[in-house]
């Protein structure tokens, strides 16, 4: 688990993680979104289009784009995703990206998010706060 110390994460660290010079952070969030979209066992055409549109807005190398398209064929398992999260702040962003990509009307998708929050050690109050921001 992470050492969760509230009020010690500066805003800059959140935006740095996904700015153009930190494509590792962007890639991790994209991989999280793909894994979340796949939580119900398939990625439908709407989800695929959303992901493609997102990838096009990112400044990625040809290799990085190829990696994401491979990822669409074989999304990460939840355990792999959790293992790839380097710190608590990225954990929050990974959860927010996942929650924004997932269809919350599906029980299996809700369960996926619950498990993700649990494994990333995100407190339930913070989970609720993220959903308030997302309007979900």
């Amino acid at each position: 688990g992470f050492d969760f110390t509230p009020a010690t994460l500066p805003e800059q660290s959140f935006t740095d993680a996904i700015d153009d010079n930190h494509s590792d952070g962007q890639l991790l969030l994209m991989r999280a979104m793909i894994a979340a979209a796949y939580a119900d066992g398939h990625i439908d055409e709407t989800e695929r289009q959303k992901i493609f549109a997102q990838v096009e807005t990112m400044q990625l190398s040809v290799q990085e784009k190829a990696m994401l398209f491979d990822e669409l064929r074989k999304p990460m398992q939840l355990s792999e995703l959790v293992a790839a999260v380097p710190n608590a702040q990225m954990g929050i962003e990974v959860y927010a990206a996942s929650a924004s990509a997932i269809d919350l009307n599906q029980t299996v998708s809700k369960h996926y998010l619950d498990t993700l929050a649990n494994q990333l050690c995100i407190p339930s109050e913070l989970v609720m706060s993220i959903h308030r921001e997302l309007n979900t």
Binding site: A7, E11, F14, I92, A97, R132, E133
Partner: peptide, 18 residues
């Protein structure tokens, strides 16, 4: 994705101020 970063920060800030 920039939106996700801003949103995560706002959610975290709200949480930490509770």
């Amino acid at each position: 994705l920039a939106a996700v970063g801003g949103l995560a920060w706002k959610a975290y800030k709200q949480y930490s101020e509770q």
